[in-house]
Design a protein around this nucleic acid. Sequence first.
DNA 1: AAATAAATTTAGACAAATCTAAAAATAATT
DNA 2: AATTATTTTTAGATTTGTCTAAATTTATTT
Lengths: 219, 219
Amino acid sequence: MKLSESEENYIKSIYNLQVKTEKVNTNSLAVFLNTSPASITDMLKKLKSKKLLEYKKYYGFRLNETGNTEALKIIRRHRLWEFFLVAKLGMEWEKVHDIAEELEHVSSPELINRLDAYLGKPKIDPHGDPIPDERGKVVLLKQKPLKDLAMKQNAIVSSVSSQGHEMMEMLNHYGIGIGSQIKVLKSFEFDGSLQIKIARKPECIISGMAAQNIYVYDN
Amino acid sequence: MKLSESEENYIKSIYNLQVKTEKVNTNSLAVFLNTSPASITDMLKKLKSKKLLEYKKYYGFRLNETGNTEALKIIRRHRLWEFFLVAKLGMEWEKVHDIAEELEHVSSPELINRLDAYLGKPKIDPHGDPIPDERGKVVLLKQKPLKDLAMKQNAIVSSVSSQGHEMMEMLNHYGIGIGSQIKVLKSFEFDGSLQIKIARKPECIISGMAAQNIYVYDN
DNA sequence: AAATAAATTTAGACAAATCTAAAAATAATT
DNA sequence: AATTATTTTTAGATTTGTCTAAATTTATTT
Ligand SMILES: [Mn+2]
Ligand SMILES: [Mn+2]
Ligand SMILES: [Mn+2]
Ligand SMILES: [Mn+2]
């Protein structure tokens, strides 16, 4: 299926919103894509006519099987490029998203499969998100927000839900990265803040908001 | 200067045509880009208004200094990606052009400079064409068509003017590649065909047309 | 120097992707 | 159950890049 760059961006965004909500609605996609709701409706019509999604007017929409497959291809490209940019070109974690946002639209299957092999068929991207394989299969980590981690339990930082510059800055400050060993020492009920220990780093305290946006898996 | 993908394709094509002719004309660019002459005129107006070229109606056009600089940036990206695809991903010479045609439009300077460094700041692309450096400087080889090479003179194949599948097939058949050592043993005036010797390959005869499209430099 | 041919530009149309403002449908309150 | 608020869709424009067909300009022949 040949898709325009815009169509691809919409499909990928719908996929990402779908993870959280059953049905996606016009306004949330408009906010996510930073466009007007009218533009969303226009594109929904097109995607529906291309049989990529289920869409009942006024009642939200959702990718169908075909749409999902397409979304996973785009996400695969996006995350492989992010991996490349960090692992091979040594770019910073926070800068790679925007570049991958463009690279993901170059859609030669041979290119992507060779890139995949060249990178050693990586399973997770620099933000800790899983990279779909050639058949569109993703290995989901059993991760949870740091705030739900049991006290004194050893865990590994697996991903962060916000991947912008601000998050990066904070993580760098605390010396937290994807793969860091982490343990919660104390939790303050008042504001949800946590006292934590990162392996080979001094103890520190992070906010409840941070604790909600950092994901870990049990070790 | 922020340029659309189309504008970039036009600029790059004009640059490439300029190498051969003093002024570029509407029809040749239309043929080159496989579009209608009317579309060319439309785009020329836009590029002129963006002060990227000199254009006198009915009398042809030419990139100005700014246009040239932009063209060289696009060509740099194109050729670096081609180099990457062949050198790192092991793709074939004939397949990389179309992919680079898309990759070249991803225009993060940091990306390109890191890619350049990662590749070891290569000077020529897989087709033998020079890669402009960060400042837009190109090192031009003193090359000439094989048909103009003196008899029995040792030379190196430096580039080929046609880079499609057909050329690739023929070169592969004869065992000719960029960098091959070559010598002309005999020239047949009747049709311009040449008897040649490639280092470590059997002698063979190539057509006058081939001899015109394979470039070499003296050794 | 006309007449004819070739190249180029203009006029007008169209598809894609977006927008704003107005209308319509659905949801939430009183 | 009305009224009000929110969400979503439609109507109508706009920009970009393209096209065909007609008009215009330049080049080439006779
Ligand atoms: Mn994108
Ligand atoms: Mn990512
Ligand atoms: Mn291109
Ligand atoms: Mn090349």
